[in-house]
Design a protein around this nucleic acid. Sequence first.
DNA 1: TTTATATTTGTAATCATTACATTTATGTTT
DNA 2: AAACATAAATGTAATGATTACAAATATAAA
Lengths: 136, 136
Amino acid sequence: MFSAQNIGKKISEAGIKPSLQRIKIYEFLLKNNIHPTVDFIYNQLVNDIPTLSKTTVYNTLKLFEKQGLIINLIIDENEIRYDAMKNIHGHFKCDKCGKIYDFEYNHMQLEFLGLNHFNILKTELNLKGTCPECNQ
Amino acid sequence: MFSAQNIGKKISEAGIKPSLQRIKIYEFLLKNNIHPTVDFIYNQLVNDIPTLSKTTVYNTLKLFEKQGLIINLIIDENEIRYDAMKNIHGHFKCDKCGKIYDFEYNHMQLEFLGLNHFNILKTELNLKGTCPECNQ
DNA sequence: TTTATATTTGTAATCATTACATTTATGTTT
DNA sequence: AAACATAAATGTAATGATTACAAATATAAA
Ligand SMILES: [Mn+2]
Ligand SMILES: [Mn+2]
Ligand SMILES: [Zn+2]
Ligand SMILES: [Zn+2]
C-alpha cells in the first residue's frame, strides 16, 4: 500500500528530496491517521532512527506543509498537529480523552457572507466536545 | 450603549463578581471587536490601571470563558484570542496583515457525517488567506 | 579527491502561558 | 471600629512548545 518507493515519489512530487528522515516522517503520517504532534512523532521514530533530532521533525513537517504535502491543525493551543489526509474534512477533538476524529461535512453547500474579494486559502472546521467512548 | 452598570450586570449574570479589572477587561472586549490577545489587552489597559498584572488578564479571560461570557479563538499557534461576540460566526485571518475578520455562514445547513453520539459543545470555523486590503 | 551544497543535529534562546506565594481588597463577625 | 475570613490581584519563577543558530554529517558536482 505505502511502499518506500511510493512514499519517496510523493515527497519528490512535492518538490522535496526524499531523505531517510523525511520518508520515515511522511510514512508515519500516512500509516497513522491520528493527527500527531511533533513530540509524538519524534518519540515514535527515535526508536527507528536513534540519531533523530526533534529539530528535524519540526523542520520537516514545516517544509511538508509549505510544499502542500500535508496540512496542519490548530485545534488547541500549545500544540500543532499534522495530517497527511488532504481531502476536505473537519476535526472533532474530545475534551476528555483528547482523541481527534475526522468527519466529513457538506462543504459544497457552505456559504460565507461578507467575504467578497477575500482570497481564501485554507478552511478549518474544528469541533470540540465529548466522544461516544467518553459519553458512557 | 455599554454603561459601567450594564457591563457589571452582564458579568454578574455570568456568576462572576464585577471587580474593577474585570469590568475594564470585559468593556474592552465589548468596545473593541478585534479579537485581541492577552498581551494586547494588557498593553491597552495598563494605561488606565497602572497596577494591572498580566496574570490578572490571563486569569480573568480564562474565567470569563469558563463561565460562558466570552469565547476564545484558536486560529493560530502561539496565541489565544478572545471575542465577546457570542453569536455563531466564523473568523478569517489574513496571512499578510494579521487582521481577523468576522463573517457569517449558513450554519443551519451545515451537516456533519459520522458524528453520531458525539456531544458537540463548540464549533469553530476558521479561514485563512489574504484580505481585500492586502490583495491590491 | 576536492569543493560546494543540502540536510541533520544539538544546544541555547524565545515567548506565551501557568504555578505559586504574597499582597491587597472586600465582606463579615465580634 | 477592630479582628477575622475570604476573594481577587499582583509579581516572580517555572514550564513547555517552538525557533534560531552554529556545527556536524551527508549528498552531489567538479
Ligand atoms: Mn484529519
Ligand atoms: Mn468574532
Ligand atoms: Zn473521548
Ligand atoms: Zn490583510
